[in-house]
């Protein structure tokens, strides 16, 4: 006992000097980087909230006619654009998500090192980097122009958005599928499962949460895109719930149109549309989180 009490207490702190300084420096620069990211993000959110919140009302969200630009903000609303954004994005998702997930399954489970798989993987990487306006131009050229004025429709916009979403969905799904441990596949094969069984009953359920959140992130991204819609959906001020024919409209396009106007009413409506769009994206993100948690209930 006596021997213990006379012993000096061990100094377990990080030794001072260069190592401690390096640590401080690294932690400090991380906080600085975080601030650099948060400040502009905060300003964007704050300005949209401040300028957009005043016009948001039930009437603004549901009104079926976007009023002439000269009218003040308490007239009409963006209901037509909300409907347009939802239906165009939904149809684009119906095209791009199944194709993208199936493509990723091919790349991850079936393609291996085959030339076709390598080609698809390379092309989808390249497509990820293509500016979104090029997708709009592409659909404009191959779909809208051959049909003349009747070529403008929500569906044409959906095609353009689907082109944009497809590589994103393929990439994110592929990465998620590669994360499924091979030991699970082997466990299933060892029970006499065929490759399709292994994929359907082990790989996909294990990856489901990630696949859904990847897909919803692509949806949120597409919902906010303007460029692919500029040449493809035409422009109308009234709700068009038929995406297959007739010009349509969308929140992103309305923001682009309205904020450039010299009339305060139109500008205010533009800000309101921006806030609405952010809210829609936000709801998608929350949904992605919830769905991921639901699918991952067995992974721990």
């Amino acid at each position: 006992m006596a021997a213990v009490s006379t012993q000096r207490t061990a100094d377990l702190r990080e030794p001072s000097g260069w190592r401690r300084a390096k640590n401080r420096l690294a932690v400090g620069s991380m906080w600085f980087a975080l601030l650099c990211v948060l400040i502009p993000l905060g300003f964007v959110l704050a300005s949209v909230l401040v300028k957009g919140a005043s016009v948001i009302s039930w009437q603004f969200l549901t009104s079926s006619t976007i009023p002439p630009n000269v009218l003040p903000a308490n007239f009409g609303g963006m209901g037509a654009a909300v409907v347009g954004t939802l239906e165009i994005t939904a149809f684009a998702s119906v095209i791009a998500i199944p194709l993208g997930v199936l493509g990723a399954i091919y790349l991850s489970e079936y393609g291996g090192n085959r030339p076709l798989a390598r080609l698809i993987s390379f092309l989808s990487d390249v497509m990820t980097g293509v500016p979104s306006i090029v997708m709009g131009l592409f659909i404009f050229t191959v779909w809208v122009i051959p049909r003349g004025l009747s070529g403008y429709s929500g569906m044409a916009g959906s095609f353009a958005l689907a082109c944009l979403m497809l590589p994103i969905v393929i990439r994110s799904s592929y990465e998620i599928l590669r994360l499924v441990p091979d030991s699970l596949r082997q466990g299933s094969y060892a029970l006499g499962a065929t490759k399709s069984r292994v994929t359907l009953t082990v790989v996909l359920p294990a990856a489901a949460g990630g696949l859904v959140s990847g897909a919803l992130l692509a949806v949120a991204r597409a919902a906010g895109e303007t460029a692919p819609l500029l040449f493809t959906i035409g422009a109308v001020e009234a709700t068009n719930s038929n995406i297959f024919s007739g010009s349509n409209t969308a929140l992103s396009v309305q923001i682009f149109d309205n904020v450039l106007q010299p009339y305060t009413g139109a500008v205010d409506r533009g800000w309101g549309a921006a806030l609405t769009l952010i809210a829609i994206a936000f709801i998608f993100m929350i949904a992605a989180r919830l769905v991921t948690a639901r699918f991952n209930r067995y992974s721990r």
């Binding site: 082997q186 006499g192 069984r197």
Partner: peptide, 30 residues
């Protein structure tokens, strides 16, 4: 067909991310 008669247990336990019941029922189900 070979693997249905000749099963295998691996070095590292590799239960599926499913319930205990579904893990055991997996083989009979397929």
């Amino acid at each position: 067909a070979v693997r249905r008669r000749i099963g295998m247990v691996f070095q590292k336990p590799n239960p599926f991310p499913k319930s205990i019941y579904d893990n055991v029922a997996y083989g009979p189900r397929i």
